[in-house]
Each structure stands twice: as C-alpha cells, then as structure tokens.
Design a protein around this nucleic acid. Structure first.
Lengths: 137, 137
DNA sequence: TTTTTTAGTTAGAATATTCTTACTAATATT
DNA sequence: AATATTAGTAAGAATATTCTAACTAAAAAA
C-alpha cells in the first residue's frame, strides 16, 4: 500500500505539472486562477444556472453574479434565457470559453504521448486494461 | 493513442476531483485559492527567496511580498534570514503551512485505496511496474 | 574605493473577489 | 386569489491581488 501511495503521489504531481504547463501555454487568455476555476466548474456542470454555479462553488449569488458579468463582458460566457422558467438563465461557454477544454486536452495529449514513449505496445494494452478497471466504478 | 488520451483524461479528472475534495476537507485553513498556490509553489521550490518565488510565479516582487506578509502574519510561513547574503531571506513553511502537504497526502491515500479496491494483488504489482516505467525518465 | 547590481521594502493606486442587505419579477403553494 | 418561495440583480463595503515608481542596504564588479 505504501508503494502504491508513493506511485500515486508522483503520478499526481506529473499530471499537475502538465496541467500547469498547459495553463502557462494558454496564458493568452489573460484570466485569473479564480476565473479559470469558474469556467472549469461551469464546464463540468454543463450550462448551469447562476444559482447552481453559486451552490457548487459555495459562494453567494451576488459574488458569482459579478464574476459571471465579467466573464460575459470578456466574451468567455453567454447567458441563455430559459423558456421554462423566465426568471432564470443558463450559462454557456462561448468558443473562447471552451479554450479551457482545449487547454486540458493539450495536457492530456502530452501525458498520453509520454506514456506511449515509455511503454511498448503490449505494456500499453495492459496499462489501458488496468486503468479501465480502476476507473470504472 | 486515442484510447490512451481518453484514459488519461478520465484519470486526470479523477485525480483533480480527489484533490478538490481534499481541499474542501481542509478548508479549515481558510486560505484563498491564490494563497494555496503560493504555499504549493514555496513547497516545491524548497525554501525559496522572495525573488525566486516571484520569478516562478511570474509576478512582481512587491506583489509577492504583500502576499507573503499575510501568510507570515497568519503563521503559515516564516522568514529565515540568510547568513551568506544578509539582504536575503528564505521562506519556510511552518507546521501549519505544511498542512498543504497533508492535504495532498490525504488525496493520494484515497486514490491509492480506490486502486487497491479495484485491482487484485497481481494486478496491483503489474500496475506499479508499469507506472514505474512511465514515471522514471 | 567608487559604481553598479541585487534583495527586499514602502507607498499609492487599480482591479478582483467576496460579503450582507434589500430589491424585482416570476413561479409555486395554500 | 393571496402568500410564500425562488432566480437573479443592485448597492455598498471589506479584503485580496496586482501593478509601477521610488527607496534602503548589502553585495559584486570596475
């Protein structure tokens, strides 16, 4: 178990490093850490309302509103009014906002490349099988 | 390769989720995202000077100074004057500051536990071997 | 030894992040 | 139909994050 934790620690750091490098690469976006966190959370929630976003981030609605206003202003997010409930709107990422995904994909691609460099065909097969067991609950 | 990228994406998200949950668990620290980022960077740099920290974070020295002042104030960091160069000081994490590590260790432990639940003894051996190949450059 | 560079600090300002309180309009409950 | 709840907004304030310009003291270079 100790060995496994150790391996996980090194692996997590590697993932973290790659994500960090990707973030630097895409720094063009000119977003703060916090703003990226907002975009990532929106992305995971899949077009949440402001209320849902605030609940997930554990922040007040006015706080989240001003942050979203800025992201709308900067064209990373658009509000799409709901027809079912006319009080409410869904937050969508614009093409520009989706660069967040591109950034993560870039990191994942680099990690995958590194793996395929270190393992031969057969080992890669094995690795994929084991990871599938780990990740499928 | 496509399969591998996919697996990496899911695995990265899992790691990210666990780290996020650990962060929530340790929210007691009452630190902002940015402040945690400072502590993590200090930790990686191993007692850096203010100048080194600023360079790594790509921020100006006055910016980093005010942030470090607050972390010192809150007892997460101490300044240790250098004897070789009396202009300079090294930034050390206090016991309280090292809770950042504890937090990551907690996440890693949970991931390792999940792996050992999903894989039998033999598969775990295999997994460790493959990961060692991947992580040793 | 004089000059230049370096590490860190101070001051002052702009913007970001967050909150509470109070409001409007729409929807849901009674 | 009257009342309560919910989604989002507005105002105002506190704290955090960041910058540039200007400074002090120590170390390095000339």
């Amino acid at each position: 178990m100790k060995k496994l934790i150790e391996i996980v620690a090194i692996g997590s750091n590697m993932v973290g490093l790659m994500e960090e490098q990707a973030r630097e690469q895409f720094n063009l976006l000119n977003l703060t850490l916090t703003q990226m966190h907002y975009l990532e959370t929106m992305n995971k929630l899949d077009n949440p309302s402001l209320t849902e976003l605030a609940a997930t981030l554990k922040l007040s609605k006015p706080t989240v509103k001003v942050a979203v206003d800025k992201l709308v202003e900067k064209d990373f997010v658009i509000r799409v009014r709901s027809d079912e409930d006319r009080r409410s709107a869904h937050l969508h990422l614009t093409e520009k906002g989706k660069l967040i995904n591109t950034m993560h994909e870039y990191a994942h691609k680099r990690i995958a490349e590194s793996i395929s460099r270190k393992l031969n065909e057969e080992e890669q097969e094995q690795f994929i099988l084991l990871m599938e067991k780990i990740l499928n609950k």
